[in-house]
Amino acid sequence: MIPIPASLHSKSSAHDLKSRLDWGEPALTIIDVRDRSAFNACHIQGAISLTQAELVDRATANLEPMRDIYIYGATDEDTAEAASMLREAGYQNVAELTGGLAGWQANGFPIESTSAVIG
């Protein structure tokens, strides 16, 4: 039996997010704010791409303000800036994914990639 995950924190680890996804009813959105080419090359499985330039406009048009959001960028600083933008726009349930994609991959968690494997 998978334990009920902890509640959303302003800063979350890859393990926190994975636990929430494994629970089976995550009711959350994962946002990647890196540029599109980085997103297209590789991203957390299930993440959506919203660059920082379009983040608030697209989020307010598509996501309920009470939605749980996990967000990550190229660096923890980019992540913090994007999370701050969402919080200022009225989103209260925003978690900064510390370590971003690198932290996620270091744990061997699922990613989506358009990179071809040559071997």
Rank of each mutant, 00 (worst) to 15 (best):
Q92W: 13
A61M: 05
S37H: 12
S37P: 04
I44T: 02
I31P: 02
S84L: 11
G99I: 01
A41Y: 09
Q105D: 10
M1R: 13
E64F: 04
A6D: 12
T29G: 02
A95K: 03
C42R: 14
L86V: 06
I111W: 08
A53G: 07
S84P: 00
L50H: 05
H9K: 15
G103M: 02
R67D: 01
L17E: 06
P110Q: 07
I71Q: 09
A80Y: 05
A14Y: 02
V33L: 10
L55I: 01
G103N: 06
A95G: 10
D22E: 14
D16I: 05
I48Y: 03
E88L: 14
F109Q: 01
A89H: 12
I44G: 02
M1V: 13
I31V: 15
S49Y: 01
S115K: 13
W104I: 03
S19P: 02
E54G: 04
S7Y: 06
A27G: 13
G90S: 08
P26H: 15
Q92F: 13
E64L: 10
A14R: 04
A80S: 11
D32H: 00
G99F: 03
D35G: 12
P3M: 05
A38W: 09
E77V: 14
N107F: 08
T75R: 11
L28M: 13
Y91M: 05
A47F: 03
A27Y: 14
V56E: 09
G103D: 03
T51F: 00
G46A: 00
Q92E: 15
R20L: 15
E112K: 12
F39Y: 15
S19H: 12
G46P: 00
P65I: 08
D16H: 14
A102G: 05
T98G: 05
S7F: 09
C42H: 11
L63Y: 09
I30G: 00
I2G: 03
A74W: 08
A83R: 07
G108R: 06
S49N: 10
A116K: 09
A38N: 10
I118M: 11
Y70H: 08
D22P: 01
S19N: 15
T114L: 05
N62E: 09
A6E: 11
A38T: 11
Q105M: 11
A53C: 01
I48Q: 08
P26D: 15
C42Q: 14
P26E: 14
A59Y: 02
G100Y: 06
K18H: 13
G90K: 07
P5Q: 08
N107A: 13
W104T: 03
G73I: 05
A116I: 08
E54L: 13
I30C: 01
A27N: 15
L101N: 06
L55N: 00
H9S: 15
H9G: 14
R20H: 09
D35T: 10
D57Y: 05
A6N: 10
D16C: 07
D16K: 02
P26N: 15
A116S: 11
L50V: 02
R34K: 13
S7N: 12
I44Q: 02
A74H: 10
Q45F: 08
L55R: 01
E112S: 13
Y72W: 06
D76N: 12
E25T: 12
R34L: 10
E96I: 01
P3K: 10
P5E: 06
S7P: 12
E96A: 10
H43G: 01
W23A: 14
